[in-house]
């Protein structure tokens, strides 16, 4: 981005260094790692407050618990251990047997403000995501993107989400589909990695993009 971006004028190919000598002395910058680490891979974590950002009521509950000395066992996530679908205002509109016949991106249809997103064909991370956020995105008529992470016991949120999507994608008539038809159906999902791993890549089994 110090060379290719259209607005940069950098004929000498200057880019930031850890140590720069100027006439008056030396200036330093920190270096960067090539892999993002989670907090608990770096230091000892006592409790997890999920969310991007964690909502005020959960923060308040956490602070109150600390002040009252009523904290759960170490390592607990301070939010309900249920999936978003459990508390979603659209839960009743989610059909027993869900099948996405055609994936719809959020701009391809006028999204219905009361119907389950998956039932509309719009990929929603709700089933693979912990609740506790107040379903703020859902109430703004946007599908969940997974910022609260998974429920207890799920090691890889992205894998869980992919498994969920695979189980409802093209369910009707799946037995009669050819390999190509199945692949085409899966390709209807724009950017699967960026959707299912947006908040959890660093803690996933994969951890990062493959290095060359």
């Amino acid at each position: 981005m110090y060379k290719e971006v259209p607005t940069v004028d950098n004929p000498k190919g200057t880019f930031p260094q850890q140590k720069t000598k100027v006439k008056e002395g030396e200036l330093t910058l920190p270096e960067f790692y090539d892999t993002v680490k989670t907090l608990d891979q770096t230091i000892d974590v006592d409790y997890y407050l999920p969310g991007c950002p964690p909502p005020p009521d959960l923060i308040m509950a956490a602070i109150t618990a600390i002040l009252e000395g009523k904290l759960p066992e170490k390592g607990a996530v301070l939010a309900p251990n249920k999936a978003l679908c459990d508390t979603c205002p659209r839960a009743e509109s989610k059909p027993e047997k869900l099948s996405i016949d055609e994936v719809k991106r959020p701009w391809q249809i006028k999204m219905d403000p009361e119907l389950c997103f998956l039932a509309q064909g719009v990929i929603c991370m709700g089933p693979a995501t912990r609740t506790g956020c107040g379903e703020t995105c859902i109430r703004a008529n946007q599908p969940c993107r997974g910022c609260f992470g998974p429920v207890d016991g799920v090691v890889d949120q992205g894998a869980k989400a992919l498994s969920m999507i695979a189980s409802i994608l093209g369910l009707d008539g799946e037995e009669n589909m050819t390999e190509e038809e199945v692949k085409r159906k899966i390709d209807e999902i724009a950017d699967p990695a960026g959707t299912v791993y947006r908040f959890s890549l660093a803690s996933s089994l994969l951890k990062r993009k493959r290095m060359e």
Binding site: V5, T7, V8, N10, F15
Partner: peptide, 9 residues
């Protein structure tokens, strides 16, 4: 346009 210096990101 954008200018780059080596001592800052």
């Amino acid at each position: 346009r954008e200018h780059v210096e080596p001592w800052t990101y």
